[in-house]
């Protein structure tokens, strides 16, 4: 009976006891309420341009480059694009670009734009690796730039930032359903921890329903890039956009189901960043129509 009481149910979400129940069951780690009294702040920048894609959803590479430059400059606070990138990576770094090919793939144009930007600031081409895949891929890198695409997921609720490193676990199926709460632990693996200097979400053409396969009715031209270094804060912004889009589509609340456990757990258990919108400093520039934030 006691064991059954620690199974996570809908009631935990209503009561606000998700953390306690998860902590007592699958995580086996106490759920804290944050980082004590110390105030937290994470910067997330959002760049949008209505012309980033044509009506046929073809990416305009010039517009995309401009958005990328703006986003990185705003994020780093530097004035020149070269200084901005060199505030993120060093010339000796081996840089892994971690894009996704699943469900709603990262636009190749974005991967190419980042690669070109790095080469332009003096990073040798051979030091830039495509690092999506198993643990060996990440072990070869000193710096990671995470390039997920904005999307929901039918087993984990949201499948954007935190889930983007699932292959690094070597056992991705261990992180579905309730165990999706543990996605944050992958970011703390010794060969992953601390390497992510930039999370750059492809929000050009997001997918707001969770699938399990793509239904184009739930994709829309958001024409955005979301940038930060705090993966939880960036995921929280992504979650807000998806939630608001779903509400707008249906004209009534349409919550993600199953609920995304991984975001709050990444904050409260794995201390990867903040999952509270009020602790996120959001800088957005460019196109503001249907911002959803």
């Amino acid at each position: 009976m006691e064991n059954k009481q620690s199974i996570l149910t809908r009631r935990d979400f209503i009561r606000g006891t998700v953390g306690a129940t998860l902590g007592a069951s699958i995580l086996g780690i106490p759920w804290s309420n944050g980082f004590g009294d110390s105030p937290r702040s994470s910067l997330v920048t959002l760049a949008r341009d209505q012309k980033a894609m044509s009506d046929d959803m073809v990416v305009d590479q010039d517009v995309l480059k401009k958005m990328l430059d703006q986003a990185v400059i705003q994020f780093t606070g530097e004035k020149k694009i070269k200084d901005a990138w060199l505030a993120i990576v060093k010339s000796k770094d081996t840089i892994g670009l971690v894009s996704t090919s699943h469900l709603n793939p990262t636009h190749q144009e974005l991967v190419d734009a980042v690669q070109t930007a790095l080469i332009d600031v003096g990073i040798p081409r051979e030091q830039i690796l495509m690092a999506q895949g198993g643990p060996d891929k990440v072990k070869a890198c000193t710096v990671l730039i995470s390039l997920p695409a904005l999307k929901a997921h039918w087993l984990t609720g949201i499948g954007t930032v935190l889930k983007n490193y699932i292959q690094y676990s070597g056992n991705p199926r261990n992180y579905h359903q309730e165990n999706s709460a543990k996605l944050g632990e992958i970011w703390n693996l010794p060969f992953v921890k601390g390497k992510t200097k930039l999370v750059l979400v492809d929000a050009l053409h997001p997918l707001c329903d969770k699938g399990p396969q793509v239904d184009p009715r739930y994709k829309w031209a958001y024409n955005g890039l979301i940038v930060g270094s705090d993966p939880v804060a960036v995921e929280t912004v992504c979650l807000k956009i998806i939630t608001e889009k779903r509400r707008a589509l249906r004209g009534e609340p349409w919550p993600l189901s199953p609920p995304p456990l991984c975001v709050e757990a990444a904050d409260k258990i794995y201390k990867l960043g903040t999952s509270k919108m009020e602790e996120i400093k959001l800088k957005n520039f460019g196109w503001t129509q249907d911002l959803l934030l």
Binding site: I7, L8, T9, R10, W154, Q177, E178, K210, S257, P258
Partner: peptide
């Protein structure tokens, strides 16, 4: 129960 959870969440376990 996975399909049920995808539109009305009860529990991640098959209760």
């Amino acid at each position: 129960h996975l399909v049920l959870n995808s539109f009305y969440y009860l529990s991640h376990q098959n209760i």
